[in-house]
Design a protein around this nucleic acid. Sequence first.
DNA 1: CAACAGGCGGGAC
DNA 2: GTCCCGCCTGTT
Length: 259
Amino acid sequence: MKFTLKRDNISLEKISVSGQIFRMKREDEGFRVHFRKDSVLVEEDEEKLTFHCSEEEFFKIWYDFFDFETDYSKIAALIDKDDKYLLTAYESGYGIRILRQDLWEIIISFLISQNNNIKRITNSISKLCNLTKDGSFPTPEILAEISIDELRLFGLGYRDVYVKKMAERVRNKELDLNILEKLPYEEAFKSLKSEFGIGNKVADCICLFGLHKLNAFPIDTHIKQILKTHYPEGLPENYRGFEGVIQQYMFYYELNGTR
DNA sequence: CAACAGGCGGGAC
DNA sequence: GTCCCGCCTGTT
């Protein structure tokens, strides 16, 4: 079963290397993505996307996952005509969207991402998924049961204690993800930051990619440099509310350029 | 060999 | 509050 739709401001190719998702792999026919227990293969060509699933499944799961509800062209229209840097970054990153991924998977993924490189992050997460029979991302219960020594084998380095503690916290409902999902940005950010292993950057990544708070603006080493060079006075006011989307265009442009 | 990779915790001040 | 250091580990 397949479901086809016209491409409009979406690029799986770019999303796959935008740094927000760590297990979106290119297969022979297209890209495979995962959401909780489900997975789908998506073909991408110049004018359309072909989902290898029923229309019913597309609208039940993947429509939200790819955030088709949000009009990214409308957000891009906010870009200042004199902001040459961002106009170029948007042109470069045109088609990137903020996926609505599973919160738990995002929390662990970005805990692992700190002071780390994408290759190693991807490798660690891939190994973690081997813990489950179906290859889906391991639940808090599963991760909480793994010993530190065993976790170390996944190449997490010193981040293994962060992962272990977080799994226990969530399993014990000391951090309730259902509540976290209902909080406004400021409160979610504060709650996340109080967790062991989560600082400003990781908290904002989780808010942006796990809670879809488009006003979260994760500042990593690259973004810090960009701000210093192009926005010494800070981001313009008119981007307020969509800083996270802006960040993605900048980040992509910085790492992938105009290729 | 050192430096770095999408930072963070902990201690000094 | 800010500054600084050490940290797992694979790659360059």
